[in-house]
């Protein structure tokens, strides 16, 4: 019985951290789907979101929900500006140039925040006063519950937006065939901006959830989180929205179970091992189709 309870606890932990990975992976995958760009600065948007929400709460005394909204808006703006300034001029350049630029943006953000706020971690207020609930013998904390709920709501909303709305349809059209979408009257530039805004906004939600569970904010916090979310996106099939969600949960579960049953030091190695296995066995990811690139 104890074994079962212990296992279920680990599963809940895994779902919690997995839903954060999923939110971040969505940003990677949406941006990749539409501009075929791996935005390696995406992880650092989480860090920026964390700082924004932190200062909104500690500096301006805002409640956490308002701080979260400000962080979402701030990150959405950051995403749109990054695209306009750094990526758009390179839209017709070789992919490698854009990839290197993305890494440069990542380094720029990390070092800028290092300069501004030093490398020492800042404590994040414990502001989610959501009561914990007991499911049989298992206690689920308020933060856990909130994280899972909020991610689920975000993901359902995103899925409805993409599937059912006019702009969502335009987004899919651009991701599939930008030229044909242009002929239909879709502004590719606006659609790309919208995609960056949504993807980056989701990373801010992830930031607030992550910091509520692990209450430390520092300039490099986004890089590892971003990498794992990237692996989640690749695992699910990069460019595919449900793939990113599934990939996030799988990575979260594997990490949590590895920590519990094998060794916590091996958890990261496990996750990166998955990347290697996916790339060897099914490079297109779980939901990916093996389509040859059109020449």
């Amino acid at each position: 019985m104890d074994q079962v309870i212990m296992f279920l606890k680990q599963v809940i932990n895994g779902v919690q951290v997995g839903s954060i990975y999923a939110l971040v992976a969505l940003g990677y995958t949406m941006v990749y789907g539409i501009v075929k760009l791996l935005n390696f600065a995406h992880g650092d948007f989480i860090m920026v979101g964390a700082y924004i929400s932190l200062f909104a709460m500690t500096g301006a005394g805002m409640p956490i929900w308002l701080a979260a909204i400000i962080a979402v808006a701030g990150c959405a703006l950051l995403g749109v500006l990054t695209e306009k300034i750094a990526y758009k001029p390179l839209r017709n350049s070789p992919k490698l140039s854009v990839l290197i630029t993305a890494i440069a943006v990542s380094l720029l953000l990390e070092n800028l925040f290092l300069l501004l706020f030093s490398s020492s971690p800042k404590p994040y207020p414990n502001a989610i006063n959501f009561p914990s609930i007991d499911v049989g013998p298992i206690q689920v904390s308020g933060v856990t519950l909130m994280t899972i709920l909020l991610s689920a709501v975000s993901m359902i909303a995103l899925q409805l937006f993409v599937k059912k709305t006019r702009m969502g349809r335009a987004m899919r059209a651009v991701s599939e065939d930008a030229q044909a979408a242009t002929l239909m009257g879709v502004s590719v530039n606006k659609t790309i901006s919208l995609t960056f805004a949504i993807g980056s906004g989701l990373s801010a939600i992830a930031a607030v959830m992550y910091c509520s569970a692990y209450p430390m904010v520092e300039p490099y916090m986004g890089s590892m989180l971003g990498l794992k979310a990237f692996i989640a996106a690749v695992l699910g099939g990069i460019g595919i929205i449900p793939g990113a969600m599934l990939g996030g949960f799988v990575i979260g579960l594997i990490e949590s179970l590895t920590k519990a049953y094998i060794s916590s030091q091996l958890a990261d190695a496990m996750v990166f091992g998955i990347l290697i296995v996916v790339l060897l066995v099914k490079p297109a990811g779980i939901f990916g189709k093996n389509v040859g690139e059109k020449v």
């Binding site: 006019r166 349809r169 335009a170 899919r172 059209a173 599939e176 065939d177 030229q179 044909a180 979408a181 002929l183 239909m184 009257g185 879709v186």
Partner: peptide, 18 residues
Amino acid sequence: HIFAEMTVEENLEMGAFW
């Protein structure tokens, strides 16, 4: 240049996008 992953109906809806 139809949108291959969208349904037939969604393709037609895209025609009326503007």
